[in-house]
């Protein structure tokens, strides 16, 4: 564990929490892509199957359980409890355009042709593009509430910090995971345009439009 990894994890945790709190406090999930949330839940469900096979640390186990519960909780709030506020007319990104290529890629480019390993690879590739329905929704409606912008910033910052963590681990431990690094770079690049808007607009108190 190094500082980049820790802040990255905390940023991820913070992103999930502000999304849940936003939905809970405003009793509304307007502006949030349910499709991205389903993809994230699928990412956690396919990646954290190792909860049943390996124990790494209490920190690792608790974080995994939190991510799993919170992502399914978010889906419950969006599709059941506050269903009426879900903006489905603007959430129209075709997720099969992500799921099918990601499934094929994970079958071809993986560390080992083994069920758990392929599912892990699938989750890494899927996570890198899972935000696209949300970004598509923001671009379609042409705006995002500040709280949604903070959520996106924290979520994007997390993988960016993981890249610093991988650079640090490469020099200190010789650790290098090509699949995670490439997917992590793709994931961070997808947020770049948003980061620019966030810094130039949202932090100056303007709405993201």
């Amino acid at each position: 564990m190094n500082i980049f990894r820790l802040i990255g994890d905390l940023s991820h945790l913070f992103a999930i929490l502000i999304l849940l709190l936003k939905i809970w406090k405003t009793r509304s999930c307007a502006g949030i892509s349910g499709r991205s949330q389903i993809l994230f839940a699928l990412v956690f469900a396919t990646r954290y199957l190792d909860l049943f096979t390996h124990f790494i640390s209490l920190y690792n186990t608790l974080m995994k359980i939190f991510y799993l519960c919170s992502s399914f909780g978010t889906i419950y709030l969006m599709y059941v409890k506050f269903k009426a506020t879900y903006d489905r007319n603007h959430d129209t990104f075709r997720v099969e355009f992500l799921l099918i290529p990601v499934a094929i890629l994970s079958l071809i480019f993986n560390h080992e042709f083994d069920v758990l390993e392929i599912l892990w690879t699938f989750s890494i590739y899927l996570e890198s593009v899972a935000i696209l329905p949300q970004l598509f929704m923001v671009s379609k409606t042409g705006e995002a509430e500040s709280i949604t912008s903070h959520y996106l910033f924290a979520l994007g910052a997390y993988r960016g910090l993981y890249i610093l963590n991988w650079i640090y681990r490469y020099y200190t431990e010789g650790f290098f995971d090509l699949i995670a690094v490439i997917a992590g770079i793709v994931q961070t690049v997808l947020y770049c345009d948003f980061f620019y808007l966030y810094i130039t607009k949202v932090l100056k108190g303007k709405r993201l439009t």
Binding site: D9, H12, D50, I56, S57, H111, W120, N165
Partner: peptide, 10 residues
Amino acid sequence: DEAEEVKDEL
């Protein structure tokens, strides 16, 4: 059997 790589990242 070679040692399995344990994935400690989230």
